[in-house]
Simulated assay, not measured.
Amino acid sequence: MKILVTGGLGFIGSHTVVELQNEGFEVVIIDDLSNSSMDVLEGITAITGVKPHFEQLDLKDRSKVEDFFATHKDIAGIIHFAASKAVGESVQNPLKYYENNINTLVYILKELGKLQQQNFIFSSSCTVYGQADELPITENAPVKPAESPYGNTKQIGEEIIRDTCKVNPELKGIALRYFNPIGAHPTAEIGELPKGVPQNLVPFITQTAMGLREQLSVFGDDYPTEDGTCVRDYIHVVDLAKAHVVALQRLLQGKNKSNYEVFNLGTGKGSSVLEAIQSFEKVSGQQLNYKIADRRAGDVIAAYADTDKANDVLGWRTELTLDDAMASAWKWEQKIRRK
């Protein structure tokens, strides 16, 4: 079966392509290379022994999207990652985020509606919950007003898919709400490679340990948590990638209970920023240079998933630990800096 992965050279997308190819799917990747590199395609090929079909395409160009689908009518499912994803940048440049994350979704869904098989997996986020009233966070937790245009595009994206599923019974959609993906493939052939200053904790940790960053700032140690630092649910990217394959197979096999479903993807365990640092120091043997800084605007205190629905209904659960993720991220960082 031919599966389209948009943003398939990105961090989560590339790991998902690997897992799809491991399960025997034929993968077509669309990526505009705005936040990725052709080296990733080589990494995927090195891991799986199969080079996926790749097309460099800007999904904001509607006519090119139409042309692509006209030549790929046999697509059995789409996993849609392609989106801008830096919270801070979205605050500075909201129109870029609304154009890139919303328009492209609409164009893809319009073309998907013309296909024989209409299976769609959407890359969503736990940002839709904001600071949840109760922990752990279930899929029934209220969706709060977004803290950023990025978060808002994930909320709007889910609404667009849900509304489209209501009027098109042929369309089957699953929104996967990720918590905090970290780590790299154990082969160190692919991993997280942010352009410029990292927006996420783990690449900042590994770059600081490599000496690329002078110091890591821990934003706030006066939160109402066990050690005063923010708590997050850090999920290994390989576990996350495997969930996409399980969700896709659920749709292909007609096991979905309705034509629009939502699942949280996390470990179910919250780890503080200091615990994440300690995990890295343990597996790497490196002492990390970090300092406590002022709180950062927009940070929620704590967020971790209730994974019962993903475990019981989707039939997926995590297998890898925080230490596993940190070890793989460190192995990846060391490899890319040796190039």
Rank of each mutant, 00 (worst) to 15 (best):
F120R: 02
Y178T: 01
N101V: 05
E261Y: 02
G49S: 09
V202G: 05
D323K: 11
D299I: 14
E111W: 04
Q286H: 14
L176Q: 00
S258N: 11
K335M: 13
K269H: 12
R232A: 04
Y223D: 08
N101L: 07
E66N: 11
D299R: 13
S125H: 09
E147Q: 13
G270R: 04
G24Y: 08
V106S: 06
L288Q: 06
S37Y: 09
L95K: 12
A175K: 00
F54M: 06
F11E: 06
N140E: 15
N168D: 13
K64R: 15
T48N: 09
E42Y: 12
G191D: 04
N35S: 13
D294E: 15
R62D: 13
L265G: 01
I161S: 00
D308K: 14
T16I: 05
M38S: 13
I137F: 00
I190Q: 06
Q278T: 13
D61S: 13
V167L: 13
L109S: 00
L240S: 08
G285R: 11
R232T: 07
Y223L: 15
Q287S: 15
W316Y: 08
K282M: 09
I3E: 03
A76E: 14
I102W: 08
K64A: 12
L193V: 14
G268F: 03
N119W: 01
Q215V: 15
G49M: 09
F179G: 01
S125A: 11
L248P: 02
F179I: 00
A305H: 00
L9V: 04
G151F: 01
A276Y: 04
N259W: 06
G113Q: 13
G113V: 08
F263S: 01
N35R: 11
Y107E: 04
D58H: 10
F219P: 09
A146K: 03
D312C: 11
V273F: 07
I121H: 00
A46W: 05
G220M: 09
E333D: 13
A276G: 08
C126N: 11
M326S: 07
E42F: 11
G8N: 06
D324P: 11
E333L: 12
V273S: 02
G113Y: 11
P149T: 08
S37A: 06
G13A: 05
A82K: 03
Q249L: 09
Q199K: 14
L193R: 15
E23C: 12
I174Y: 00
A83E: 05
G130W: 03
I121G: 01
D222T: 14
V106T: 10
I160R: 04
D133C: 09
I182D: 02
N311V: 11
Q207S: 12
A70R: 14
S217K: 12
V238L: 07
V50Q: 14
L314A: 04
I301P: 07
L105I: 06
Y129W: 10
L248A: 03
L171A: 08
N119Q: 08
C126A: 14
E189Q: 13
I235G: 02
P194A: 06
E111G: 05
T321E: 11
T138R: 09
E192T: 12
V197E: 14
V313N: 06
